[in-house]
């Protein structure tokens, strides 16, 4: 009996510790990292692509309205500024592992690293199921931001 209780207690401890660890990662990533930092450059969706060409690997901040969150796993989202034609792709990272669909329509501030991306080819089945937002337009930007943290400015 005591042996079973001990084993059960050990498993529970591991589960609680693991969930606490994951929760801490998420909280840290979303609540503390997006703070005023003079070394991190603040960009807009309008000037991002031009800036990114010569600044791959640099940490930046960018704010915009979320117009799309990928429904297959929440691994990427797209934001816009004043010009809806200038979309910026934001991808997940080890710090922020998933984007929730509730972010669509919200204005967020993202802190992350500029990365180059190859043009993605969508499978035919996926192309057929997409609305106007999820056409190949989303897969033509050359640079994206790997999100280290984000904060919701306006829901």
């Amino acid at each position: 009996m005591m042996k079973k209780m001990t084993v059960l207690a050990l498993i529970s401890f591991i589960l609680v510790s693991a969930s606490t660890l994951f929760a801490q990662d998420k909280m840290t990533a979303t609540s503390t990292a997006v703070s005023a930092d003079s070394k991190v450059l603040a960009l807009t969706p309008e000037n991002f692509q031009e800036f990114a060409v010569n600044n791959v690997g640099k940490e930046v901040e960018i704010q915009g309205m979320v117009v799309h969150v990928c429904k297959h796993g929440g691994k990427k989202l797209f934001i816009i500024g004043e010009d809806p034609e200038k979309r910026v792709k934001i991808t997940t990272s080890d710090k922020v592992s998933v984007f929730e669909p509730e972010l669509e329509g919200s204005t967020i501030m993202v802190k992350g690293i500029i990365e180059p991306i190859a043009e993605e080819e969508l499978p035919e089945a996926e192309k057929a199921n997409q609305d106007a937002d999820h056409t190949n337009y989303y897969h033509t930007p050359q640079f994206s931001i790997s999100c280290l943290a984000f904060k919701t400015i306006e829901e």
Binding site: M65, V67, I80, P84, E104, G105, S106, A132
Partner: peptide, 22 residues
Amino acid sequence: YKNHYFPQSDQLKIFLKGGSAI
């Protein structure tokens, strides 16, 4: 209602709580 924008000149996308309308 949550927010809205025009992805194209002839399309209005409205973000809703729990979804969207185009």
